[in-house]
Amino acid sequence: MLRTPTTALRTSHRALFRAYATASQPHALVLLEHRGGALESGSLSALTAAGQLGGKVTGLIIGDKDQVTPLVEQAKKLQGITSVIQSSSPHYATPVTEKLSPLLLSLLKDSPPFTHVVSAHTSSARSLLPRVAALLDVPAVSDITSLEHDASGSTTFTRPIYAGNAIATVKAPASIALKFFTVRPTAFPAAASTNSGDVEVKEVAAVEEAEAATEHISTNLTKSDRPELGTASRVVSGGRALKDAATFEKTLYPLADLLGAAVGASRAAVDAGYADNSLQVGQTGKVVAPELYIALGISGAIQHLAGMKDSKLIVAVNKDADAPIFQVADVGLVGDLFEVVPQLVEKLK
């Protein structure tokens, strides 16, 4: 009895294959996320990645009416964007996945013009895209670092696996009519604002669920005047050696402020309560690839390296000369960070 649905699914796959077998021009739908009245820089990187498919790129902006209107104007000017879809509703002001997925589904079901669904690998998109992909019975590809689309309609991606210790090259064949993928922002430059802004804007009605299974209660964002960790060009990171929250601040912040750098932390430092969770760099935290990454008192576990080893220049200060961080550091100094960092601040001034 349970076999019947599977057979039905296979048939529908074949039906899709027939409908899309002639390779059409790619058309990506890119989720443009925003916060505080600005488009997320990760979404701008996703836009660049979508442009590399070689076809049309439609940006999708969802939010409260007041949020959406100015963002559409920003989005129209972005390099590579060919049209914008906006959808607004008070329900989208602080959306939960269950409220966004019906809207996305309505845009994607029944022979949509789109061939790819794209977003940055952010926490919100990571929650949303797989849910929608499953409802359309297609796979999703997470956290891609490069892509190539060919004339036959297949797209080949590379993505890190095993905490970045191996790179998988995977091909989504033409038979997958809608290819979902999330983009590692640090692997693609952010789309610049260069267009004349003369692109088509379409408004689609919000799709409101009578009662979503999950409701949003509150959001707590860590306030900081420093650059955002995921996109900062310089990062100063601390580990377990920082002893406690006060020492972490006292030691790292002057150096970070001097360099105009974001502050990061190892899991050990976060678990011990020295720094907020949102500052964690690694496989399970943020992946960063700044121009300069300074690792202070971080041993360099596999999981931490996964989040920073694509940084341009890695500097490590550690008491332990055998710490694995020195195997990836371009410049290493074996020493007590409590002596080194103040001197560093003094001499950099």
Partner: peptide, 24 residues
Amino acid sequence: LETIRISEPAKRQAGAKVETVEEL
């Protein structure tokens, strides 16, 4: 999805250790 290949990530060039903060 078809896995085409699994490869090693690009290796970083071995860095140098410095002795003093001045050198750093």
